[in-house]
């Protein structure tokens, strides 16, 4: 039963990644592209944890924690660069 639910969740998040990629490519504005990249990071975190459940290892929690940190910092620095023309003033 868990295997079917894992397949469903992995395919849902993978399809979500493809939709985000479509928004990154066709996004009419900077803010749409930043938002789509941030959503891609969140979907990738979910896929990493689902991969950890599938393989039965807990090593992917550190990976997803680091991925969340890097995604947050990159999103905020991209927005700050667009707003202020500088990241660290």
């Amino acid at each position: 039963m868990i295997a079917y639910a894992l397949t469903f969740a992995i395919s849902a998040f993978g399809l979500g990644l493809l939709l985000n990629l479509w928004r990154v490519i066709s996004g009419p504005d900077h803010s749409d592209r930043i938002l789509a990249l941030d959503t891609m990071v969140i979907n990738a975190i979910a896929l990493l944890i689902l991969l950890g459940i599938t393989l039965g290892t807990t090593i992917f929690f550190e990976v997803s924690m680091l991925f969340a940190l890097v995604g947050f910092v990159s999103t905020v620095s991209y927005c700050r660069f667009l707003l202020r023309g500088d990241i660290i003033e």
């Binding site: 639910a5 469903f8 969740a9 998040f13 979500g16 939709l19 979907n43 979910a46």
Partner: peptide
């Protein structure tokens, strides 16, 4: 897992 898949897909 099913609830999470539905929510993630709806968000994207």
């Amino acid at each position: 897992l099913v609830i999470a898949g539905v929510f993630g897909f709806v968000g994207s």
